[in-house]
């Protein structure tokens, strides 16, 4: 049994979380979150992959050809959209925080609040 693609997904998640925990800059924090979320793309695509399968588009291949799972691909489409929008809001918040506290270091935001 080949678990390498799943291990890649797990690795991306771990690296992303590590980035979030040790981040010294809000933009770096948001990008680490994006890396962590990229693990879901790898996981979903790996689960739906069929050895030798074609893309699930029957425009130029006859019906009945083995294809990869279209359901997880549609789920991933949702995933990409949500990730993009969440990063946009988080980056807007980062700009706001920098303007307000004069620093983009997550550790220093708490100190400055009081």
């Amino acid at each position: 049994m080949n678990v390498a693609p799943y291990a890649v997904a797990a690795w991306l998640l771990l690296v992303g979380i590590y980035g979030v925990v040790t981040s010294r800059h809000l933009v770096h924090l948001v990008l680490s979150l994006v890396v962590a979320q990229a693990s879901t793309y790898v996981l979903l695509l790996a689960i739906g992959y069929r050895t030798g399968g074609r893309a699930p588009i029957f425009f130029d291949i006859p019906p009945g050809t083995p294809v990869v799972d279209p359901v997880v691909q549609a789920l991933m489409l949702t995933d990409v959209v949500v990730e993009a929008t969440v990063s946009a809001v988080l980056l807007a918040l980062a700009v706001q925080a920098h303007k307000r506290f004069g620093s983009a270091d997550p550790d220093r935001l708490g100190e400055l609040r009081g």
């Binding site: 049994m1 678990v3 790996a46 689960i47 739906g48 992959y49 069929r50 990869v68 799972d69 359901v71």
Partner: peptide, 9 residues
């Protein structure tokens, strides 16, 4: 890997 189990696929 390479053998999706989901019936919906």
């Amino acid at each position: 890997f390479g053998h999706p189990r989901g019936p919906y696929a």
